[in-house]
Design a protein around this nucleic acid. Structure first.
Length: 767
DNA sequence: CAGTGAGCGAGCTTCCGCTTGACTT
């Protein structure tokens, strides 16, 4: 028997079918060993020697592989052909006690019978240089993460985290927000003219330049009163459009967000299912490459469905930084399968992947662009009308890539038939005030695109990185309501220029990434003290060094030493500096006490303070949570927070109190707390509070399965994970063979007593 | 849990990248 080990179980299943019964194919489920989770695991005094342990959730996998490996005549390490894959093979060789210098290492780029058989005929040995490069990557990330995070615990707030990837990700979002803060919109006037032609069709045209002021626009319109309009020129020019390359992880995430509204995580979950059921190739990839077999498949499909004219075979090469190309691009495994049945989200994503892959091998689209120049008899300015006609659809027959910009829609339809010298009847001429937009906030997908361009993170980490920065409270994914804005419209009506003031809603945003106060404070602190790690080019620089290690030109631990020495000195000096990073801002003076009022980050989040920290009588503190942001809170708002908790009056015979606690703003009623989430506690009136309380009561009633007479501290409830018992503040799991409806009070108490004691949230007593 | 905040102190937190199910209160 031969044992072949790959990384993914889905891949193992496919390959097993290609190899004879002499071969058993198993999967390692990714990495099997790592640095210990709770300790540094690196000997800094001895060449940064790492100590690896088998990951707890891989113990069973390793046990099985060990058993099989002992029985096997030969073990073939067939992990991915990249830095991480080479390291997995090395770790496997170590754990399975294979001779590292002799272990059979094989690689293949496409999963076909011939490719795999060819690989088996040409084994090589483990590339120790490549393994060293991975080790350097791993050790560097551990050192950065485990030395920087504790600095934040001391200088900002406990439990925070920092790392090569996540800290720069947050920085991108923080800096974009700062650009938006300082952005000032300017406006200019866009002039549009509409004509009605003899056949009844409408011709839309525009003044190519925008007019800077209302005065300019007014003068221009005024000069056009009573003018004649004439087509002076018609120009037609051909152009071509090429299809987008096949999907990588990053472009799939972007396009699924644009066209299907999926989050990057959703996209990956759905793609994983398609992969596991054998419908698509591997979904975590940075490669644009299609295998020859795949190209043949696409070719056959295009010829059969659209004809030879639509075929244009292309081979794409990857442009993104740090790409490792261990896999193919994301494509259907079988192009003759046009759609998949069953789950709707899978069907939609498959459709997108099929179309994109097929389109990438189709002909260019051919267009004809026509520009009509319209003269104005009273004015030397010219109007332009533009039209675009598709003369050959090519790949557009199947697929066009979505677009991110949400600016002015361009009318690129066909122009009606026109002749040079033709007179035109004006039906409308107006100048509208248009504004410049601030740079857009990142969406998940546009952030992934940016990270990929900078070479930061890998296909397998884009989605988890976004989850991490949100979970740590550095970033929020949320909507922003639009605001009303006034704008001016000038129009010629009955030979006069009329001015109208109109309003529009602008700036509404959905599912955008906003930095939190803590995200801003942490980013400012890290940028100030750890410039190198926070530099957008840092990853790209160290990647170059990892490449040198892989090529055998550099020792991995020498590279780490060069990085670590100054980095560690920096950590030590920063820790020694007194004071904390608080993002402190002076809001003004409290009219009552005459003392200064500050806003800053405390250990429990944003807060305001009246008086100096050095005052003999302690300063007064209040927490600001909810809608108010540290960067924007005003003195007036701040003083309101000192009036919390506030009693709004009685509802159903009990007091309704609004306050701010450790977990944010709340409404308290009848001993129960209802979280206000992101609502501003200062905005809550009695009516809103009542609605929230009623909702909470209703929700609690719905969840109740059973209660007991005389013991209202014992309840059987329906929770997120099914039914459970609540005894006082203790939650108890119900054994699988017990029906929750049939539980008696005695059962509940007994279960509660025998339940393992939950680790209580211990808070230090303070004097 | 529904208070606090500086610093003190026990003992906790934390990284990135490769892969899927077993498991939650």
């Amino acid at each position: 028997m031969n044992l072949v080990i790959v990384e993914s179980p889905a891949k193992a299943k496919t390959i097993e079918g290609f190899l004879g019964k002499d071969f058993t194919v198993k999967s390692s489920f990714g990495h099997v060993r790592d640095l210990a989770k709770k300790e540094l695991g690196i000997d800094k005094e001895n060449g940064f020697e790492p100590t690896y342990v088998v990951m707890p959730d891989k113990k069973a996998v390793i046990k099985e592989l060990q058993t099989l490996s002992k029985k096997a005549k030969a073990v073939w390490l067939a992990t991915d052909e990249d830095r991480e894959g080479e390291a997995i093979s090395w770790h496997l060789a170590e754990v399975l006690k294979l001779d590292v210098n002799k272990a059979k290492r094989i690689v293949f780029h496409e999963i076909t019978k011939s490719a795999i058989q060819k690989a088996i005929e040409n084994p090589r040995t483990i590339d120790k240089n490549l393994v060293d490069a991975q080790q350097a990557r791993r050790v560097l990330d551990r050192l950065v993460g485990f030395e920087l995070s504790p600095v934040l615990w001391k200088k900002v707030k406990p439990s925070l985290s920092a790392g090569r990837v996540q800290s720069v990700t947050v920085r991108l979002i923080v800096e974009r927000e700062k650009e938006i803060d300082v952005f000032e919109a300017s406006s200019a006037y866009r002039v549009v003219a509409e004509f009605k032609l003899e056949d009844g069709s409408i011709l839309k045209s525009e003044l190519p330049k925008k007019l800077a002021t209302k005065k300019d626009a007014h003068e221009f319109l005024n000069s056009c009163i009573g003018a004649n309009y004439l087509i002076e020129n018609l120009e037609t020019s051909p152009s071509k459009k090429s299809p987008a390359p096949p999907f990588t992880t990053s472009t799939l995430q972007q396009e699924a967000a644009r066209k299907l509204g999926y989050s990057v995580q959703q996209t990956m979950i759905v793609a994983q299912k398609l992969y596991e059921s054998g419908k698509i190739t591997y979904m975590r990839t940075d490669s644009l490459n299609l295998s020859e077999t795949a190209i043949e498949g696409a070719k056959a499909e295009i010829i059969a469905s659209y004809g030879n004219k639509y075929l244009n075979i292309r081979r794409y090469s990857t442009k993104s930084k740090g790409a490792q190309e261990a896999h193919e691009a994301i494509r259907p495994t079988d192009f003759s399968v046009h759609s998949v049945k069953g789950d709707n989200s899978e069907a939609k994503l498959y459709d997108l992947i099929w179309k994109r892959s097929i389109a990438s091998q189709m002909s260019q689209a051919e267009l004809e662009k026509t520009v009509a120049t319209i003269g104005i008899s009273t004015n030397s300015e010219k109007l332009k009308a533009q039209g675009e006609v598709l003369t050959f659809d090519g790949f557009i027959k199947v697929y066009t890539e979505g677009s991110d910009d949400d600016g002015e829609p361009d009318q690129s339809g066909m122009l009606p038939p026109l002749n040079i010298g033709q007179q035109l009847n004006l039906t409308e001429l107006k100048g509208t005030e248009r504004f410049t937009n601030h740079p857009p906030r990142y969406t998940e997908a546009s952030l992934v695109k940016k990270l990929e361009t900078l070479g930061i993170g890998r296909p397998s980490t884009y989605a988890p990185t976004i989850s991490t920065v949100i979970k740590r409270g550095y970033v929020e994914k949320t909507d922003k309501e639009g605001v009303e804005r006034n704008y001016v419209e000038l129009k010629i009506e009955s030979n006069k220029v009329l001015e109208k003031s109109l309003t529009e809603i602008t700036g509404a945003e959905r599912k955008k990434l906003f930095p939190t106060d803590i995200g801003i404070v942490v980013t400012d602190f890290l940028s100030e003290n750890f410039e190198r790690v926070m530099d957008y080019g840092f990853t790209a620089e160290v990647e170059k060094e990892f490449d040198s290690i892989a090529e055998g030109k550099k020792q991995w631990n020498e590279m780490i030493q060069m990085f670590y020495k100054p980095f560690n000195e920096n950590v030590l000096t920063t820790l020694e500096e007194s004071g904390r990073a608080t993002g402190e801002r002076l809001l003004g003076v409290d009219p009552k006490s005459g003392k200064n009022v500050y806003a800053r980050i405390g250990r429990f989040g944003p807060m305001i303070q009246i008086g100096e920290s050095t005052d003999e009588d302690k300063p007064a503190f209040a927490t600001i949570r909810g809608g108010a942001k540290l960067g924007s809170v005003t003195l007036e708002e701040a003083l309101e927070f000192f009036k919390l908790p506030k009693n709004l009056g009685e509802y159903k015979g009990k007091d309704v109190v609004i306050g701010v606690g450790r977990f944010g703003p709340y409404v308290r009623h009848n001993g129960k707390f209802v979280s206000l989430g992101k609502l501003d506690p200062l905005d809550i009136d009695m009516n809103t509070a009542q609605v929230l309380i009623d909702e909470a009561i209703e929700k609690a009633a719905k969840a109740l399965i059973k209660s007991f007479e005389g013991r209202d501290d014992v309840q059987v409830l329906n929770g997120r994970f099914g039914p459970y018992i609540k005894v006082g503040k203790q939650n108890v799991k119900i054994p699988k063979d017990v029906k929750p409806e049939e539980l008696t009070l005695e059962d509940c108490l007994k279960l509660a007593e025998n339940a393992p004691a939950k680790k209580s949230f211990s808070r230090k007593k303070r004097s």
